[in-house]
């Protein structure tokens, strides 16, 4: 799908059909994630793909933000061990989360190429999900992306007017003189 069309037609899909997703497509979508920008090339991300029914049921039970039954879930984590510093600060964690967020956007857009819908979910029980997935302490879940073939195409949400979100050269300058 052409990029700007993908950006504008992407929706958060919460209702999915029963159609299975090919593992090769899921792997390809994760590969797209790994090409996201990353500070100092740290690549501080780690993904767990869950496709089995029981695993999805268990994750959904501890994720109030998952409101339907996806065919797969991608648990997107930061891997703190990839932060190449002795004393890791809050800023280091923030930067890792920003890197992961950019990778997750790649997942969401790459999924569109396979006609798959996604929904990023932050409302989940982090300690319980870590326990369920047997994550080591350095792998910290930040986002769950549900994925599947959409049952419908949700309507576009109301977006802020373009002029409300942009200034030029410095804050307060609403027009660009060139």
């Amino acid at each position: 799908m052409e990029l700007f069309k993908a950006l504008k037609t992407r929706r958060s899909v919460r209702l999915y059909s029963d159609k299975e997703i090919e593992l090769s497509e899921l792997n390809s979508i994760i590969e797209a994630a790994t090409w996201a920008p990353t500070a100092g090339n740290a690549q501080p991300w780690f993904f767990i793909i869950v496709t089995k029914h029981q695993g999805l049921e268990d994750i959904s039970n501890f994720s109030p933000g998952i409101i339907s039954k996806p065919k797969a879930a991608i648990v997107a984590c930061i891997d703190i061990s990839r932060i190449n510093k002795e004393d890791i600060t809050n800023e280091d964690i923030t930067v890792s989360i920003i890197d992961l967020a950019m990778a997750c956007e790649n997942i969401i857009l790459a999924a569109l190429d396979y006609n798959l819908g996604t929904c990023p979910v932050r409302s989940f029980n982090r300690v319980a999900i870590s326990e369920l997935l047997e994550l080591p302490v350095n792998i910290v879940p930040q986002l769950i992306i549900t994925i599947g073939y959409p049952k419908n195409q949700p309507k576009a949400p109301k977006k802020l007017d373009f002029n409300q979100v942009i200034n030029y050269e410095r804050y307060g300058v609403k027009s660009c003189e060139r």
Partner: peptide, 17 residues
């Protein structure tokens, strides 16, 4: 057990949401 996990997780999330 999973259902109770769901209710507890909802409660936990609402401290911040």
């Amino acid at each position: 057990t999973g259902y109770i996990g769901y209710v507890f997780s909802s409660a936990l999330g609402l401290f911040e949401e």
